[in-house]
Design a protein around this nucleic acid. Sequence first.
DNA 1: CTAGAACCTCACATCCATGTCAGAGGCAAC
DNA 2: GTTGCCTCTGACATGGATGTGAGGTTCTAG
Lengths: 136, 136
Amino acid sequence: MCGTGHSREDGVRIGELASRTGVSVRSLRYYEEQGLLASTRSASGQRHYTAGEIDRVALIQRLYAAGLSSRTIAELLPCVHSPSEENSDAAMERMAQERDRLSAHIADLIRTRDTLDELMVINRAHRESLQMAHSH
Amino acid sequence: MCGTGHSREDGVRIGELASRTGVSVRSLRYYEEQGLLASTRSASGQRHYTAGEIDRVALIQRLYAAGLSSRTIAELLPCVHSPSEENSDAAMERMAQERDRLSAHIADLIRTRDTLDELMVINRAHRESLQMAHSH
DNA sequence: CTAGAACCTCACATCCATGTCAGAGGCAAC
DNA sequence: GTTGCCTCTGACATGGATGTGAGGTTCTAG
């Protein structure tokens, strides 16, 4: 009577997760292959995801964008979702390490942006001087 | 009497430039192939670089690190070194565009760093609570 | 002159997240 | 049933900066 068929909390399929997160189906399967993302399988083998996986995918994307490799992300994620002594131990260190690397990278990018700004200022100056010379 | 042989300003060879900039010889040749770097050739075909090229290589590296492609860098560099009306015209726009992209990327990275910080805080909290429970 | 280091070109290899395609099966609607 | 869309696995392709090696020339030190 009310449509979609699965009324219980058995989660969404991969296409749905893809469109919700903006990540391609291909990439979601890849994440699973790399151990970044878990899925429960239906009897016929189709992947099902819970609402929590949406946030997880978002986090994965952010970490990718920050330059972490899938291997590194795989090291950090378990620490995120089940903070026990075991994984915390080494993962915390890597986490701090990646944080520092990221921080350094940000500083570097800011310096590069400043350089670009300077170049643009210089160029504008040249431009104006040319225009002046033109309309002497 | 004073060593190196070439007393005039005929510049350094590629190995020297590589060690001065920390960029591999392979990459320097690649930069030239992409039109990012100029070199004068000796009679026998060996590349010679002037002191200015050192800075240029450094800038190229910075732009690469900022996520620009060699094609984009190639568009910007002429504008940097010879700011005439022609190249300024389109290149300035691209420059502003890349600057904005970079700015957005920086903001994104900062948010990701904050996320990492939060995760570390949470983890530390879990850790301490575990330790407390352990030494009840 | 000669040995070794540096250089040349050309070309193929690597990494890694994604894209893309093929062939097969699952699921809902008509 | 059949049509159409979604999903599955597996495999090959892509792009871009860089590594690496072969085969040959050039430079420099002894």
